[in-house]
Computed example of a mutant assay.
Amino acid sequence: MSTLAKVPCTIVTGFLGAGKTTLVRHVLENAGGRRLAVIVNEFGDVGIDGEILKGCGIESCPEDAIVELANGCICCTVADDFVPALKGLLDRPVPPEHIVIETSGLALPKPLVKAFNWPEIASRVTVDGVVAVVDGAAVAAGRFADDPEAIARQRAADDSLDHDNPLEEVFEDQLLCADLVILNKADLIDAAEKKSVIDQISQTLPRAVALVEARNGQVPVKVLLGLGAAAEADLEARPSHHELEGEHDHEDFDTFIIDLPVFASPQQLVERMVKAAETHDVLRMKGFVDIEGKPMRLLVQGVGARIQHQFDRRWPDGKQRQGRLVVIGEKGFDQAAIRTLLAG
């Protein structure tokens, strides 16, 4: 079947905190009347990203067209979660004209692209493109790359040491599968840092891929949608560090949820989040918080010690105003200490 007869799907990938949800929300708000649907997958059990997107109130993408998958990463649960969710959207009385899939920040995109060749959906959908969102400030700070000289010294001292960097491998796998790279948060780095980041990305990419700079995920929708890549038919051009592995189970990372008390001010929580990130090397924090005397919930998002917050929407009527925060870090970080620091 020609790809022209298939519903195009855009896969939005990118490491934790890169700005994927902000980018997807921008797409929804600027869809120009096109009927969209969204599948959003999170690493953790609290649907923060889905809640953010459902708060858009956009007619062309109603809440029931936003499907949340929070039971595990869709790169390794395609049969149980992703394919049924996709079929459910396609079987709607008025199916979407374009589907946007936001992966977990720890997902490998290639297994998801492969799933589009499954017989149940192969004749109905195509991967219009894989968009990799990159946190320019995080790359500039060396979050994903090891120090080559330090590694050389360690190897000289002990050849048996294992120097695999799980952050770098996931980050690179997302770039290796991309049809378009969005250098997000470009406003947070200077010209020299930007050149260094672009050079690092270019050295990772296996083929010519367009790179677009962005601030707060603000990229023209016509640049993001309509790439026509048919990526499921182009798998050989998308190498992966995990090519020979069966399942990608994220065993290098931990996540947990904290129920938060009411805070007197946003700054009171932000100061605790910064201390937690700096003391315990937290990768990502994201959630909603109850601020005393405020009718709206506070959305807080942290990438390392960089914390953003804003009042995003009113708390639902008739429901308890419970603040909750998802915390993600590398395996073995001190969950009890972080919990005490943030909620104690």
Rank of each mutant, 00 (worst) to 15 (best):
D147S: 03
G50A: 06
H163Y: 10
E120I: 01
A150G: 03
D162N: 14
L161E: 08
V131Y: 12
G72P: 12
C56F: 04
C76Q: 06
V100A: 02
I74R: 12
E63H: 01
A79C: 00
L108S: 05
G142E: 03
F116Y: 05
L108C: 12
S60K: 00
L69V: 15
D158L: 03
L161F: 00
C73Y: 02
P109D: 10
K110V: 14
P93R: 01
D164T: 15
A138M: 00
V139M: 09
S123E: 15
R153I: 12
E102A: 06
L89Q: 06
V131C: 13
C76L: 08
A65W: 15
G72D: 08
L106Q: 06
V78T: 14
I99Q: 03
D146F: 05
L90S: 04
L53V: 11
D159Q: 11
V125W: 09
P62C: 00
D80A: 13
A70H: 13
I48F: 05
C56S: 15
S160P: 00
V67K: 02
A156V: 02
A145P: 04
S160K: 03
V133L: 02
A140F: 10
R92I: 04
F116P: 06
V127I: 15
G44D: 10
R143K: 14
K54G: 15
A107P: 06
G105D: 04
K87I: 13
G44I: 12
K54N: 12
E63S: 14
T103G: 05
P95C: 10
S123T: 15
E51Q: 14
D146M: 07
V131M: 06
I52A: 02
